[in-house]
Amino acid sequence: MNRLPYRLLALCSCAVLLTGCDHETLHKQRYAALFAIEQHANGLTGTVLDLGGAQSYHAAGDSVSDLLAALALEAGQSISTGHLSLLLLHGNVSQLLEEPVHSGTIVPTCAVLWTDEPIPGQWDAETDTPDAMLQAAIAQGDLPASTADRILGDLYGGSGVTAVASQTAGGLTLSLWDSSGFLGLLSTDAARGLALLSGDWDRFPLPAALGESAVTLTACKTKIAVRQVDDHIAFHLTLSLSVARQHGAAVSLSDVHRETIHAMVNAAMQETLTQQGGDLLFLREAACRDRYPDAETMTAAEWRICLQTATWEIELLQHS
């Protein structure tokens, strides 16, 4: 007896089961590109923009999972967040982010943007979404990447302080948060300094200064050394910079450019370390590596206090 048709039938059934998608299932899904969550005193409201940018839906709920269920009811289709490119938050970042990441509702590598403005109930597909602006800002070194896993990693590890990309009336910048709430906004220089140190950018333009032409950095490798000076912790940051060639010729960093970089990194360290005790650059890991006393055993709160008295030196090297 020829058993091949039966085997093929079994194989096809398996394939259908494995994909989990029949015709009906595919058309019952709506794929979200942007998910905005707004926190109110009596719960949450949320807006979802679908992947094509054609439609947006608005609903309310007590938790993020409730919100998604309400949005699905509003859309008449279940909402898939597997392809989400941006999570837009208005409210306490740490409270809003924890549930969707830990329940697996959003991908941990999803970009996160906080806004101080109330989120509109409808999105206009014709206007630029914040996602495109955020990606452009990261690519040109205005902001470091701000993803859910980094934010939660900094909140639970490090000193319990994290930086989140933020949209304010003044444009895109960085805000600092701890588990209790908002700590403050960083200056443009500090945000650029952190972006430079994080190395998430594609090209890092340095504007033209008096008598100097503009140059573009193509790479920056940061080395952090930690030591104890008197009764406080001291960091030595060595930045190895690569500069883009102009008209085929090598360009060296001028003193003005060096001062600009120095000022940006200094602002980043001043506003994160000294003012808030934030560890956004794996400083604790560097301290553990360099065997700084008690770095491994300190609690997050102790490490935060320790960082507030820290000093630092910045050394710039240029790759030939």
Partner: peptide, 19 residues
């Protein structure tokens, strides 16, 4: 790859892949 987020719901191997 995973940095400071070492534990999360689901296997971190897939976080590694995403990064």
């Amino acid at each position: 790859q995973n940095g400071r987020l070492q534990n999360w719901e689901g296997n971190p191997f897939f976080l590694l892949l995403a990064r």
